[in-house]
């Protein structure tokens, strides 16, 4: 409960005002006069300011609170609609045999791509949507007979409108993901693929090694990591799925992740690159929290203020050292 203390109320107002931006000359004179009125004003202000600054460290703690999605996208975004759907049984996906001709039929498809740090939502003619994350390239061929997307690189979130007769297929390298009325994300790093299913179910297949790897059903609130000749499934909590999809709101969410992995994530979203020594214990520093993906400078500052690391920024690279 907050005590009634007029001096503290005034101090808090001054602090909030300066938190909004630098004071103009008149306001600054007013503030200085207020501070000079009594020592009690001064100590009250210093106390609040210290607490407020200390809260900055939340950005580099293990478990910073997870940021709610921005209001605008809560209203129109899919999350609110997902919640009840999470409860219903997973739809069972059908595996459909697709001719493994390399570029067909994508020659006629639409191409979508994003630059580093950008996001883009593609609306397909069947009503499905694809949200492209940073540095992503894909080709979509969607018409009355075919619904196929080829993910060449990067990461995308698919929100698919159900159509019994025309399953939606995502192909990435030798891996194929077939879904029925599903919301899922696919991330490609070279020939490694990570599929996170938020709703419904998908089947992941290794087209190059059909005899070694059985098609794998991945249901909602689970993920699969697929590499040539290996598809591994693991469960995900609702929160983990939400965190994994934080990029849809421009947010990176980490829980207890080593700094070297965190740096690699930031580097996907920024031209300026974080450089963490490949050897040594620094890369093992554990990071948690919720960060703005494109604000690499703020993250570097926090490494400095929160962990006392040395940060050298030459404009192209940010080198981290002890």
């Amino acid at each position: 409960m907050m005590e009634h203390d007029p001096i503290e109320e005034q101090a808090a107002r001054w602090l909030a005002r300066q938190d909004a931006g630098p004071l103009d000359a008149a306001a600054k004179a007013g503030f200085d006069a207020w501070i000079a009125t009594s020592t009690r004003h001064r100590v009250t202000y210093l106390r609040l300011e210290a607490a407020w600054q200390r809260a900055d460290q939340l950005r580099v703690t293990r478990q910073a609170p997870v940021l709610p999605p921005p209001r605008a996208s809560v209203a129109r975004g899919p999350w609110r609609r997902w919640a009840p759907a999470m409860a219903v049984a997973a739809a069972v996906a059908l595996v459909v045999i697709i001719p493994a001709l390399d570029d067909w039929p994508f020659a006629a498809g639409q191409k979508f791509s994003t630059g580093v740090g950008d996001r883009y939502t593609a609306h397909l003619q069947d009503g499905s949507q694809i949200e492209l994350n940073t540095d992503t390239r894909l080709r979509a061929s969607v018409d009355q007979t075919t619904r196929e997307v080829r993910l060449d690189k990067g990461e995308a979130f698919f929100e698919v409108v159900h159509d019994d007769k025309h399953p939606f297929v995502v192909i990435s390298g030798d891996l194929r993901i077939v879904d029925v009325g599903t919301k899922f994300s696919v991330r490609r790093d070279g020939d490694r693929l990570e599929v996170v299913v938020a709703e419904g179910a998908v089947v992941v297949e290794d087209m190059a090694h059909p005899n070694d790897v059985a098609p794998t059903l991945v249901t909602q609130l689970s993920a699969a990591v697929a590499q040539p000749k290996a598809i591994r499934k693991s469960p995900r909590s609702e929160e983990q799925v939400r965190d994994a999809l934080g990029w849809r709101h421009g947010t990176l969410v980490f829980t207890d992740r080593p700094l070297r992995e965190v740096a690699a994530e930031f580097n996907r979203y920024n031209r300026k690159q974080l450089v963490v020594p490949a050897e040594g214990p620094m890369g093992d520093i554990r990071i948690g929290g919720s960060f703005e993906a494109t604000n690499i400078d703020a993250f570097a500052r926090l490494l400095h203020s929160g962990f006392g690391l040395k940060v050298i920024d030459d404009g192209r690279e940010i080198r981290i050292s002890n």
Binding site: D19, A20, G21, W52, A55, D56, L58, R59, A64, P65, L67, P68, T251, G289, S290, F291, E292, N295, A298
Partner: peptide, 13 residues
Amino acid sequence: VTLLRKVHGLPQR
């Protein structure tokens, strides 16, 4: 407000 300001480091505006 506090999360956006402190965790995300967004300016008040």
